[in-house]
């Protein structure tokens, strides 16, 4: 995250001194008392603050409290009773929970590099193309903008064992139809392919915008010096793209942990529990098993895991060797 404040040192004053801008000073005497207690800049921040408190901080507190409780639904009401760490103690013996964490890590480990590499390659290609640049820049955005549920339906129409388009194509080529989503490995590969189709376009937009920001002079200078296309991209363009690629990777990493819609629609987490990623598992525990306390405990563990990964990334950036253009 860059700080736009750094370009305006005069504004980076302590909060208390900030109201002393000349025009405000002149009108100070007419300002009603409530205005001084609640200046406009504070009032303007209140809606955001209230939203974060009521719909992020408070639910978070409730989540932690729920994870430490046994919650029954009786007569349409929640009945809470303290359970200590019992819900957390359940986790190590829960094979499905451990599998859902593992398969989520695998899912992230494959889809993040795949979408980042593919999206970057597409961005470079669009910049180099002339004939197809306009069309591709438009069409390549579609998967990232269409509702994920619709993306899932599109792939259901393609992969469905009965009358799915892919099997129809195979049959007309004289090949045997496949049960794409029917086997564990087939289902896992399928959701990975769908995810790459779905989100490589997002990386494409991000990297393409970063490419637009590169000075054409830099590239031309390298070309004039006799560098080949490959050398230009490897030694001039790629290093300049490092911050954008890092940002895109981080965004895709958190998106991988959020993935839900595609599995819910395409595989319902199956066959068996093969594609039950953590988000889907939390839903199942919470809404199918109605085990509210345990669902909350798994949620807390997911949040802690993401927090740990992000903290590692932050530490890595702070102490790592990437002090070059990566921090520009």
């Amino acid at each position: 995250m860059t700080s736009p404040m750094s370009s305006q040192p005069s504004r980076a004053t302590p909060d208390s001194a900030a109201d002393t801008a000349a025009p405000a000073e002149r009108r100070r005497s007419h300002v009603p008392v409530w205005r001084r207690v609640l200046p406009f800049r504070l009032v303007a921040l209140l809606p955001l603050a209230i939203f974060l408190l009521v719909f992020a901080a408070y639910p978070m507190v409730q989540l932690v409290r729920m994870s430490l409780s046994e919650v029954e639904i009786a007569g349409g009401e929640f009945v809470w009773s303290g359970a200590g760490l019992a819900n957390y103690a359940e986790f190590p013996d829960d094979d499905i929970a451990r599998y859902s964490f593992l398969i989520t890590v695998v899912f992230i480990a494959v889809t993040v590099p795949a979408t980042v590499i593919l999206g970057t390659v597409l961005a470079v290609l669009v910049r180099r193309a002339t004939l197809l640049a306009g069309l591709a820049r438009n069409v390549l955005l579609w998967p990232a903008l269409i509702a994920p549920v619709v993306v899932s339906v599109i792939w259901w129409l393609i992969l469905s064992p009965n009358f799915g388009t892919l099997n129809k194509v195979l049959e007309s080529l004289g090949l045997p139809p496949q049960g794409w989503l029917g086997s564990s490995s087939g289902a896992i590969v399928s959701i990975i392919v769908v995810d790459v189709w779905h989100w490589a376009p997002l990386v494409f937009i991000l990297i393409y915008a970063a490419l637009q920001g590169i000075e054409p002079d830099l590239i031309e200078a390298a070309e004039v010096d006799g560098a080949t296309e490959w050398q230009v991209h490897r030694h001039v363009v790629l290093p300049l793209l490092v911050p954008a690629i890092a940002a895109a990777s981080l965004i895709r990493l958190t998106m991988g942990a959020k993935a839900f819609d595609e599995m819910y629609v395409l595989t319902q987490g199956g066959p068996g529990t093969a594609t039950t990623l953590v988000s889907l598992y939390i839903r199942n525990v919470f809404f199918d098993r109605l085990d509210l306390g345990y669902g909350a405990a798994v949620s807390v563990l997911v949040i802690l895991a993401i927090g740990a990964v992000l903290a590692l990334v932050a530490i890595g950036r702070a102490v790592g060797p990437g002090k070059g253009p990566a921090h520009a």
């Binding site: 409730q62 989540l63 839900f260 953590v278 988000s279 839903r283």
Partner: peptide, 12 residues
């Protein structure tokens, strides 16, 4: 992940 907040949001 929004799903991890769903239990808390639900009671809220």
């Amino acid at each position: 992940p929004p799903m991890a907040l769903v239990p808390g949001l639900y009671v809220t």
